[in-house]
């Protein structure tokens, strides 16, 4: 499990969607490709991070991290907690957390031939 907490806490998992086990190396644009059902399509467009059958481990984890980071930014007391642990001011911590949302889990895995 990843360890990016402060005060040695890792961040919470707030996402309801469960990771499908198996191949983590599927097509990266699967989320965008998943458009047969218009209702589902709308759901995906509206709620970033909604999972589907082909969600990869990387995608899921990235969504988790982005959700977590934005939750910390959105709760003043959590932000203060992280700031105290890290020895930074709150504005810097908020900025760095938002910046980290760009690529919270490192580089995406390469494509494999399907």
């Amino acid at each position: 499990m990843w360890k990016c907490g402060s005060w040695f806490h890792a961040f919470p998992f707030s996402h309801p969607f469960l990771l499908s086990t198996g191949d983590a190396q599927s097509n990266m644009s699967s989320e965008l490709r998943y458009t047969q059902n218009t209702q589902l399509e709308q759901l995906h467009a509206r709620y970033t991070g909604t999972g589907h059958a082909d969600t990869t481990k990387y995608e899921w984890l990235t969504h988790q991290h982005r959700d977590t980071l934005s939750s910390i930014v959105g709760h003043p007391s959590l932000l203060a907690y992280v700031a105290i642990a890290d020895g930074e001011c709150q504005a810097r911590e908020r900025f760095e957390l938002i910046e980290r949302m760009l690529q919270p889990c490192g580089k995406p895995p390469g494509k494999t031939d399907e």
Partner: peptide
Amino acid sequence: GSRRVVPGQ
């Protein structure tokens, strides 16, 4: 909730 997908930050 303070969510990523909800505007308001």
